[in-house]
Amino acid sequence: MGSACLMALSGDEGAWAEAGALIARGGMVMVAFGALAEWASPGALSGLASRIGLQGFGLALGIALNSLDALRDTSTDTWYALRLRGATRAGIRRCGRLYAVALLGAILARADAVAVAAVSRGCDRIGGGSSATEPATLADRQLTILAWLPAAALLLRRLGAF
């Protein structure tokens, strides 16, 4: 917005049009991104990824979301365990290396546990199939139009409509 104001106030020919185009571009990105972050849920994003053929990514995102708390606990527990065993006295570099190796090992062990649970639920190999996603509502369609309006305006301006 500041750049747009500076551009408009520069007094050059067509400065206002350039500033308007800048605001339209920024607005389009902000509306689309803000709407995605505000109204879409991580689960919906995971479902969408599975629906468009990215089953692996959808499942990985789902696992990541469900493991956030466990990972935080693991990282804290690993740190306390190292402190209790006196690793902090070994110097910051050695302590950091020990912490990283222990944490990465714990993550790999957890991944194996998650994989065993997934296999027991029939998710052995990721292949076809699709996850159900929520149907688009009227608000979703209105928001899509709102996000694409600046793009249409910019395209029309480029084509010389105004």
């Binding site: 692996g56 499942l59 990985a60 995102l61 789902g62 696992i63 990541a64 979301l65 493991s67 956030l68 990972l71 935080r72 990282s75 944490l103 993550i107 790999l108 957890r110 991944a111 194996d112 998650v114 994989a115 997934a118 296999v119 998710c123 052995d124 190999r125 990721i126």
Partner: peptide
């Protein structure tokens, strides 16, 4: 891709996300 590999991708992605 096996479930083990997907679980690893998810967990390492989660670690980067937490950071």
């Amino acid at each position: 891709m096996s479930a083990r590999h997907i679980a690893r991708l998810g967990l390492f992605g989660a670690l980067w996300g937490i950071v």
